[in-house]
């Protein structure tokens, strides 16, 4: 088991990460390969987290999410097996690294969270204010379980959000403008902290959006946040950043949040996803 991974890593150094892009891999192996191939204080900053990756509590969350995905639920008493996450009804493998994307049936660019809500409300018949749909944060929420399961089936695959549709391109470009948009009482934007390599806030090393090999870890959510003792989502990360920036609360599922994610996912293009990840 160890040998093919080691040789694959050697291969990747010579060719590119695309060489082993087709199969789902354990997140700790993906991270190790990135560390082996790149010098990055961000990737290596928590020795303890790296050590704990094989016992990541989020792996249980993913297992629970799989059961939930296959379970007949909601007023319509059906599973999510007909949910189209972008690669066809029921296709989970590799779906997450190709989000956000445009969906014909809604005419919108959607991220994982908004697409899941769409499936739960239209297929399973949940009301939008049902706790199954409405509760978005924390390990015990259905939303985090389902997201972690679906994301984990993209671990090791290269981020590859489509930009063929004009709306996908428009959302990505608006997301870039949002990323650099300074505002508020501290004049901050996302770019203030995330456009240099190796910079720290206090003792935390910051990821650089212009360094795809470290940015892939930055956007690898869901992740177990050791400091919170909870599995957290992309939307939770965005909310935290806007809070730190002294700007208004970001609304999950809004086009602003989706645009930002379109840009940040595009910035990690080609690099393998680490899912689920562990973060400080």
């Amino acid at each position: 088991m160890v040998k093919p991974i080691a040789s694959a890593a050697a291969f990747a150094a010579v060719l590119s990460t695309a060489a082993l892009a087709s199969e789902v891999r354990a997140p700790e192996d993906v991270l190790q390969e990135l560390i082996d191939n790149h010098e990055s204080a961000y990737l290596t900053q928590s020795e303890q987290n790296i050590m704990m990756m094989p016992d990541n509590a989020a792996l249980w969350t993913a297992d629970e999410g799989k059961e939930l995905f296959l379970e007949k639920r909601g007023p319509n008493n059906v599973s999510l097996e007909t949910c189209d996450l972008g690669k066809g009804p029921g296709v989970v493998d590799g779906a997450y690294v190709e989000l956000p994307r445009f969906f014909e049936d809604t005419g919108r660019v959607m991220d994982l969270e908004s697409r899941l809500i769409y499936c739960m409300t239209t297929i399973q018949g949940f009301a939008p204010d049902d706790p199954a749909v409405k509760s978005r944060h924390g390990t015990d929420s259905d939303m985090m379980k389902l997201q972690t399961y679906i994301a984990s089936r993209s671990s090791g695959l290269p981020w590859n959000p489509p930009l063929d549709h004009p709306l996908e391109q428009a959302m990505r470009d608006a997301g870039e403008a949002l990323f650099y948009r300074r505002a508020g009482t501290s004049d901050f934007s996302c770019a203030t902290c995330h456009t240099n390599t190796g910079n720290r806030i206090r003792a935390s090393v910051l990821p650089n959006i212009n360094a795809p090999h470290e940015w892939t870890k930055a956007i690898s959510w869901p992740a177990y946040r050791v400091g919170h003792q909870q599995v957290r989502s992309s939307n939770h990360r965005v909310r935290g950043c806007y809070w730190q920036m002294r700007q208004p609360q970001s609304i999950p599922g809004s086009d602003a949040a989706i645009a930002l994610m379109s840009y940040w996912t595009d910035a990690a293009r080609g690099q393998p996803a680490i899912l689920p990840d562990m973060k400080r």
């Binding site: 428009a170 403008a177 949002l178 609304i251 602003a256 949040a257």
Partner: peptide, 12 residues
């Protein structure tokens, strides 16, 4: 579009 998403489309 970024301005629209911030001020008109419920982003925050």
């Amino acid at each position: 579009l970024a301005e629209y998403l911030v001020f008109e489309a419920g982003g925050f």
